[in-house]
C-alpha cells in the first residue's frame, strides 16, 4: 500500500513535470507552425524566444503583472517577426541565414539590454511571475489531477492546439495559408496575396514564440538569465517536423520530447546508469529519423524555404 502510493505520487509528479517542461516548447512550436504552413522556415525561433523572455521579464517588472509581461513579450516577438518578414519576404534573403542572424542578434541584444536594465544584481523577487491555476474538481482526480494544476499559459497552449488545427483545416484563411506554403504561384493566380499571408503568419507566429519566451522568464523562473532558452527554439522546430506540420502531431511531439526531458532530469537526480545526454539527444535524433523517412516520412510544405518572386 505504502509502495504503490509512492509510485502513484511519482507518476503524478512526472505527468505534472512533463507538461510543465513541454508547455513553452508547445507554444513556440504552434507559433512556428503558422509560418511553416506558409512555407517559411524560421531557425530564428530560438532567438525570438530569447527576446520574448527578456521582454517578458521587463514587462512584468515594469507593470508588476505577469500577464503584461506576456503581452510585452508578444509585442517584442512581433517586432522581431516584422524584421524577419521584411528580410525573407520583401528582400527575399535566405531564410536560414536570416534566422541565424536573428539568433546571434538575440544573444548579443538580450545580454546587453539585460545588463543595462537589470544590472548584475537583479533580484528575482522584484519580478512577479505566473502562479499555478488549479482547475476545480479536475485537479483533485488522483494521479492525473496534476495535469490540471498548471500555469495559466499552459492551458492556453493546450487550447491553441484544436484552435490551430481548426483554423488550418476548416477555414478559408487556413486554406490560403496552406496554399501559399505548397504552391505560391497558384495561390497568387487564385487571388491570394502571398506577401500578405507570409507577413501575417510570420508576425503572428513570432508573437506567439515571444510569449513562449515569457513562459520561461515569468513562468518557470521569475528572472531572465543569459541564453536561458538553451535550445528550446530548436526543439520547437524539431517538434513541428516530428509532428508532421499538424497541430495535434505537434502536441504529441512536444509531450514526447517533454517526457524525455523530464525523465532526463529524474535520471540525473538518481544517478542512473544510462547517460542522461542520450535522452537529451533523442528529440533531435527522432526528428532526423522522421525527416529521413525511417519513422513515417515527414513531408514539408513544398515551398518551404523558398522566397516568392512575383511575376
Amino acid at each position: 500500500m505504502e509502495v504503490s502510493n509512492t509510485i502513484l505520487q511519482i507518476i503524478s509528479s512526472f505527468i505534472e513535470a512533463d507538461l510543465r517542461v513541454a508547455a513553452p516548447i508547445l507554444i513556440a512550436a504552434i507559433g512556428l507552425l503558422y509560418m511553416e504552413k506558409a512555407g517559411v522556415v524560421n531557425i530564428g525561433a530560438e532567438g525570438t524566444m530569447l527576446i520574448g523572455a527578456l521582454a517578458g521579464s521587463i514587462g512584468a517588472y515594469l507593470f508588476q503583472n505577469p500577464w503584461m509581461g506576456a503581452l510585452v513579450a508578444a509585442l517584442a516577438g512581433g517586432l522581431v517577426g516584422v524584421m524577419f518578414a521584411y528580410l525573407v519576404v520583401t528582400v527575399k534573403a535566405n531564410q536560414i541565414v536570416a534566422g541565424i542572424a536573428i539568433n546571434i542578434l538575440a544573444l548579443g541584444g538580450t545580454t546587453t539590454v539585460n545588463r543595462i536594465f537589470f544590472g548584475l544584481n537583479a533580484s528575482s523577487s522584484d519580478i512577479p511571475s505566473f502562479t499555478k491555476v488549479a482547475i476545480p474538481l479536475l485537479s483533485e482526480i488522483p494521479v492525473i489531477g496534476s495535469l490540471f494544476n498548471q500555469l495559466g499559459l499552459a492551458y492556453l497552449a493546450i487550447l491553441m492546439v484544436p484552435f490551430t488545427y481548426y483554423l488550418m483545416k476548416k477555414t478559408t484563411i487556413g486554406l490560403s495559408i496552406r496554399s501559399v506554403g505548397e504552391h505560391p504561384e497558384s495561390a497568387d493566380t487564385a487571388g491570394i496575396n502571398v506577401f500578405r499571408i507570409r507577413y501575417g503568419t510570420i508576425i503572428i507566429g513570432s508573437m506567439i514564440i515571444g510569449v513562449a519566451g515569457a513562459y520561461l522568464s515569468v513562468g518557470l523562473l521569475s528572472f531572465f538569465s543569459e541564453n536561458m532558452v538553451s535550445g528550446r527554439g530548436y526543439i520547437a522546430l524539431a517538434s513541428v517536423i516530428f509532428g508532421k506540420w499538424n497541430a495535434f502531431g505537434v502536441l504529441g511531439a512536444t509531450l514526447l520530447f517533454g517526457f524525455g526531458d523530464a525523465l532526463q532530469i529524474r535520471m540525473q537526480a538518481i544517478g542512473s546508469a544510462i547517460p542522461y545526454q542520450f535522452l537529451l539527444m533523442l528529440p533531435y535524433l527522432l526528428t532526423v529519423a522522421a525527416w529521413s523517412g525511417f519513422v513515417g516520412k515527414a513531408v514539408a510544405p513544398k515551398a518551404s524555404g523558398k522566397p516568392y518572386f512575383k511575376g
Binding site: 527575399k92 534573403a93 535566405n94 542578434l105 548579443g108 546587453t112
Partner: peptide
C-alpha cells in the same frame, strides 16, 4: 558590454544578405 559585438555581427549578416539581393 562585450555582448555588443554579437549585435554588430548579426547586423553585418543582415546587411550583407540584404545587399546581395
Amino acid at each position: 558590454p562585450i555582448s555588443t559585438i554579437y549585435i554588430i555581427q548579426s547586423l553585418v549578416i543582415i546587411f550583407v544578405i540584404a545587399g546581395q539581393m
